[in-house]
C-alpha cells in the first residue's frame, strides 16, 4: 500500500516538474517574441561590429570598451523585458488562475528561466569576441610594462557580461512582480543602468571597482590579463543573481536564496578589495 502511495506521489511530482518545464518553455518563447529583446540584439551587434572595425582614438580603447558597450544595449533590453514579464500578473485587473496548482513562484521561476534568451545571446556575442580577438591576434593596449599588442579578454572577463545580464534580468523580474505600474520602475532602472553600465570608467577605483556591475580594468601599470579580481567579481555577480532570484520569489526558498546571494556577493567584494592592486 505504502509503495503504491509513494509511486502515485512520485507521478504527481514528476507531472508537476513537467508542467513547470513547459511553463518555462512558454515563457522562453514569449521572451523571444519581445520587441525590446530584438532591439537589444540589433543595437548590441551594431555596437560590437562597429567597435571592432573602428579606428581607436586612444590606445586600448577597443580592449576596454568593446565588451561593456557591446553588452550595454542588451542589458537595457533585458531590464525592460524582465520588468514587463515579471509584471504580467500585477498589471491585470484581477489574477489569472490564482487557484491553479502552479502559483506565483512557479510562474516567476519560469520567467527567470526565460532569461536564457538574452543571456544566451550575450554568451554567443562574448564567445565571438573571445574567439575573434584570438584569431586576429588580440588587442593593442599600448607600450610599457604589462602593455602588449596582443591582449585578449580572459574567460573570467568574458563571463562577466552574461552574468550582468542575468543580474539585471532577475532584478527586473523581481521589480516587475513587486510594482503595480511598471512605468516609473522602467525609467529609474534605465537611468541606474546607464550610470552603472555605459559610464563604466567612473567605477574604476576602490569600493566602486569591487561593486561595479560591469568591471572594466583600468590600464595604468597593471597586468591586465592576470589581474586577480576577475573571477572574484564573477562570483560577486553570481551572488547578486541569487539575491535577486530570491527577492523575486515569495516561498520557502526566498530567505535561503537572498541570504546565500548576499553572503556570496559580500564575501566576493571583500575578497576583491583584499587582493585588488588598485
Amino acid at each position: 500500500m505504502t509503495s503504491v502511495v509513494l509511486a502515485a506521489t512520485r507521478t504527481v511530482e514528476a507531472n508537476r516538474r513537467a508542467a513547470i518545464a513547459q511553463l518555462a518553455r512558454i515563457e522562453t518563447l514569449s521572451m523571444l517574441r519581445r520587441v525590446s529583446i530584438w532591439i537589444g540584439v540589433a543595437v548590441s551587434l551594431a555596437f560590437i561590429v562597429t567597435g571592432a572595425v573602428a579606428q581607436e582614438d586612444w590606445s586600448s580603447q577597443k580592449y576596454q570598451s568593446l565588451v561593456p558597450l557591446g553588452v550595454f544595449p542588451m542589458t537595457m533590453a533585458t531590464f525592460v523585458a524582465g520588468v514587463r514579464s515579471g509584471n504580467r500578473d500585477r498589471s491585470t485587473r484581477g489574477a489569472l488562475a490564482d487557484e491553479a496548482p502552479l502559483g506565483g513562484d512557479q510562474r516567476t521561476a519560469a520567467r527567470l528561466a526565460s532569461l536564457i534568451v538574452p543571456v544566451g545571446f550575450v554568451v554567443v556575442a562574448m564567445a565571438a569576441i573571445g574567439v575573434g580577438s584570438r584569431i586576429e591576434g588580440g588587442f593593442r593596449v599600448g607600450d610599457g610594462q604589462f602593455r602588449t599588442d596582443s591582449a585578449v579578454h580572459s574567460v573570467g572577463e568574458l563571463l562577466q557580461p552574461p552574468l550582468v545580464v542575468a543580474v539585471v534580468g532577475a532584478a527586473a523580474i523581481a521589480i516587475g512582480r513587486w510594482v503595480v505600474r511598471p512605468g516609473p520602475a522602467l525609467v529609474v532602472g534605465v537611468v541606474v543602468l546607464f550610470a552603472t553600465g555605459s559610464v563604466y570608467w567612473m567605477w574604476n577605483a576602490g569600493y566602486a571597482y569591487a561593486t561595479a556591475l560591469m568591471q572594466v580594468h583600468p590600464l595604468g601599470d597593471l597586468d591586465v590579463v592576470h589581474i586577480p579580481t576577475v573571477f572574484l567579481h564573477d562570483l560577486y555577480l553570481l551572488g547578486l543573481v541569487g539575491l535577486f532570484v530570491g527577492l523575486s520569489l515569495r516561498g520557502a526558498s526566498r530567505p535561503r536564496l537572498v541570504m546565500g546571494g548576499a553572503v556570496l556577493a559580500g564575501l566576493s567584494v571583500a575578497a576583491q578589495l583584499a587582493v585588488s592592486p588598485l
Binding site: 508537476r16 508542467a19 511553463l23 489574477a95 490564482d98 491553479a100 496548482p101 502552479l102 512557479q106
Partner: peptide, 26 residues
C-alpha cells in the same frame, strides 16, 4: 473570479493553453 486577469497580448487559445499548463495538464 469576478475579474479574471487575462493577458491581453495572448490569443484566446494561447491563454487557455497557458492556464492548462498552470493546471498541470502536461
Amino acid at each position: 473570479p469576478q475579474e479574471a486577469g487575462l493577458y491581453r497580448s495572448f490569443t484566446a487559445f494561447d491563454l487557455v493553453d497557458y492556464v492548462a499548463v498552470l493546471k498541470e495538464i502536461t
